[in-house]
Amino acid sequence: MRNPYQQYKQNSVLTAPAGELTLMLYNGALKFCTQAEEAIEKQDPKLSHIYLIKVQDIISELTITLDNKYPIAAEMKRLYDYINELLIEANMKKDVQKLREAKGLIKEFRDTWQEVIKAKK
Rank of each mutant, 00 (worst) to 15 (best):
D44N: 14
K94N: 10
E108R: 13
I40Q: 00
T34D: 12
G19Q: 13
T112K: 07
Y82R: 07
G28C: 12
I117S: 00
L86E: 07
N68C: 08
P4M: 08
T15P: 02
D44C: 05
D81S: 12
P71A: 15
I117P: 00
L66H: 09
C33V: 04
A18Y: 13
S60K: 10
I106M: 11
K42L: 06
M24L: 15
G104N: 15
A39Q: 02
L99W: 00
E89L: 11
M76Q: 11
D57E: 15
P4L: 12
M92S: 09
K46M: 09
Y26Q: 08
K94I: 01
K118F: 02
L14S: 10
D111P: 07
A102E: 03
T34I: 10
F32C: 03
P71V: 11
N11Q: 15
I83D: 01
D111V: 07
L87A: 07
F32Y: 10
K94G: 00
M24E: 06
K120P: 00
E115N: 08
H49L: 05
I83A: 05
K42Y: 03
I83M: 14
D81P: 06
K103G: 01
I50Q: 11
T22C: 10
A73K: 07
N11M: 14
V55P: 04
D44F: 02
E20K: 15
A119C: 01
Y51R: 06
I59M: 10
K54A: 06
D67Y: 05
D111Q: 11
L86W: 03
D81T: 09
I58E: 02
L52S: 02
I83R: 00
I40E: 00
E61Q: 13
Q6S: 12
Y82H: 13
Y26D: 06
K118N: 09
A18M: 13
P71D: 14
I64T: 14
L86I: 08
K42M: 05
M1W: 09
L79Y: 06
H49A: 05
L21W: 03
K94E: 02
L30N: 06
A16T: 05
K93D: 07
Y8W: 07
M92C: 08
A102G: 14
F109L: 15
L62F: 07
K69G: 04
A73T: 11
L86Q: 12
Y8H: 09
T34P: 00
M1A: 14
F32K: 01
K54V: 01
K9E: 13
N68V: 12
S48K: 02
N84A: 09
C33S: 14
I58A: 04
R100M: 04
G19Y: 09
Q10P: 01
N27D: 15
T112N: 12
M24F: 12
E37V: 02
G28N: 10
K69R: 15
E61F: 04
A39S: 13
D81Y: 09
Q7T: 13
V13C: 01
A39N: 02
E38A: 12
N11H: 11
L87T: 06
Q43G: 01
I53T: 11
N84Y: 10
Y26L: 09
I83C: 11
K46L: 08
